[in-house]
C-alpha cells in the first residue's frame, strides 16, 4: 500500500521483511477502517447520525463565516413499515439500499448524504440556496418514484416525503435544531399525502429586491408630476 511505504522504509535495520513494521501497518489500516466504520452506516454506505451532526455543524459555521447558505434535505421513505410487514425485513433493507443508491447518483460530490435513523435520511447541500435545494429534492423524489424495486418477485413502487430548509447564518442555530426545523416539513409532506417536497413557500415566492408594478405606478403616476415641476432653464451644461 502506497500510503504506508514510508512506514516500510522506516525500519532501522532496512529489512524488507520486518514483523514490527508489518504489525504497525496492520494497526494503521485497522485504525483507518474503524474510523470509516465509525462514521458510516453499514447498510446504505451513507454517513451515520454522528457524522451528520458534526458535518452539519461545520457547514453551518462555514455559512456564518462566508455567507454561503447551507441547505438541508430530510427524507422519509413512505409506508416503510408496510414494506417490512409485507415482504419481510430483508426486503425492507433492500428497499433502503435501493433508494439510497438512486439518491446517491442524483446528488453532487460535495453533498453529504447521511442516514438519520430508520428509514429517514438527511442530505446536506453546502453553499446552496433554497430554490436550488428544492429542485434537487424534487429530482430525488422523481428518481425514486420512477424506479420500482423488485421485492419477493414483485415490482414495488417506492416513494418518499421530502422536507427542505436553508440556513442563512443570520440566527444562532444548532445543527440539531436545524434538523428538527427541516423535519417539520417532512411531517407536513406526510400529512399532505406523501411523495412530495415541502418547504417554506414564502421564502421562495418573494423576490428579495422586488419593487412591484403597483409600487412603481404609485411612484410615477402621481397627480403633481415630477417632471413638470422642474425648471430646466436653470440647469447647467
Amino acid at each position: 500500500m502506497d500510503q504506508f511505504r514510508e512506514l516500510q522504509e522506516s525500519c532501522p535495520l532496512k529489512n524488507q521483511e520486518c514483523p514490527v513494521i508489518d504489525e504497525l501497518r496492520r494497526l494503521k489500516e485497522d485504525c483507518k477502517r474503524l474510523q470509516e466504520l465509525s462514521q458510516t452506516d453499514a447498510l446504505t454506505g451513507y454517513f451515520n447520525f454522528r457524522y451528520l451532526l458534526s458535518a452539519l455543524e461545520g457547514e453551518m459555521e462555514r455559512t456564518q463565516r462566508t455567507g454561503l447558505f447551507t441547505s438541508l434535505v430530510m427524507i422519509d421513505l413512505d409506508y416503510f413499515k408496510q414494506i417490512n410487514d409485507t415482504y419481510g425485513h430483508e426486503s425492507g433493507n433492500k428497499a433502503l439500499q435501493w433508494s439510497t443508491d438512486i439518491w446517491r447518483e442524483n446528488i453532487r460530490r460535495i453533498d453529504i448524504a447521511c442516514r438519520y435513523g430508520g428509514e429517514e435520511f438527511a442530505i446536506i447541500l453546502p453553499g446552496t440556496r433554497l430554490p436550488r435545494a428544492v429542485h434537487v429534492a424534487e429530482r430525488l423524489r422523481i428518481a425514486l418514484a420512477d424506479s420500482p424495486v423488485e421485492l419477493d418477485g414483485e415490482l414495488v413502487r417506492l416513494t418518499a416525503s421530502f422536507g427542505v430548509d436553508v440556513y442563512k447564518g443570520r440566527e444562532n442555530l444548532s445543527a440539531k435544531a436545524f434538523i428538527e426545523r427541516t423535519d417539520r416539513f417532512v411531517f407536513e409532506g406526510k400529512a399532505k399525502g406523501r411523495n412530495c417536497v415541502c418547504f417554506e413557500e414564502k421564502e421562495i415566492a418573494v423576490v428579495p429586491t422586488g419593487v412591484t408594478d403597483e409600487e412603481k405606478k404609485a411612484l410615477f403616476n402621481n397627480p403633481i408630476g415630477l417632471k413638470s415641476e422642474r425648471d430646466n432653464s436653470k440647469g447647467f451644461l
Binding site: 403597483e214 409600487e215 404609485a218 411612484l219 402621481n222 403633481i224 415630477l226 425648471d231 440647469g235
Partner: peptide, 21 residues
C-alpha cells in the same frame, strides 16, 4: 432640485408611496 418647493413636492410623493406600501 430646481427649488426647495420641488424638494418638498417630491418628498410628498415618496412619503405617500412609502406610507401606502
Amino acid at each position: 432640485v430646481s427649488s426647495e418647493r420641488e424638494g418638498r413636492q417630491s418628498y410628498k410623493i415618496l412619503e405617500g408611496v412609502v406610507n401606502k406600501f
